[in-house]
């Protein structure tokens, strides 16, 4: 049962990454590890920031 839940969570995470959804957990882990002195962005601010930059440059979408 726990194993199934883990697998499901892993599958969900994989799909989220493939479709390019912002990964707040990974960001949080990164900030805590690399910059323990800094306060991380809130989830809302992080998502806003990532999405805004995604559509600024050519190369987000092809033909």
């Amino acid at each position: 049962m726990r194993r199934a839940a883990e697998l499901l969570a892993r599958a969900a995470w994989t799909i989220r990454r493939v479709i390019g959804a912002p990964d707040y957990a990974a960001y949080l882990a990164h900030v805590r590890r690399a910059h323990p002195d800094r306060a991380p962005l809130t989830q809302a601010a992080f998502v806003r920031d990532v999405l805004a930059r995604k559509y600024e440059r050519p190369g987000s979408r092809c033909c």
Partner: peptide, 21 residues
């Protein structure tokens, strides 16, 4: 690595992401 743009990612996930793009 900055947790936003630069994120080491499993190659099959990058493959799927790149293909979708």
């Amino acid at each position: 690595a900055d947790g936003r743009d630069f994120v080491p990612t499993n190659r099959w996930i990058v493959f799927g992401h790149h293909f979708a793009a």
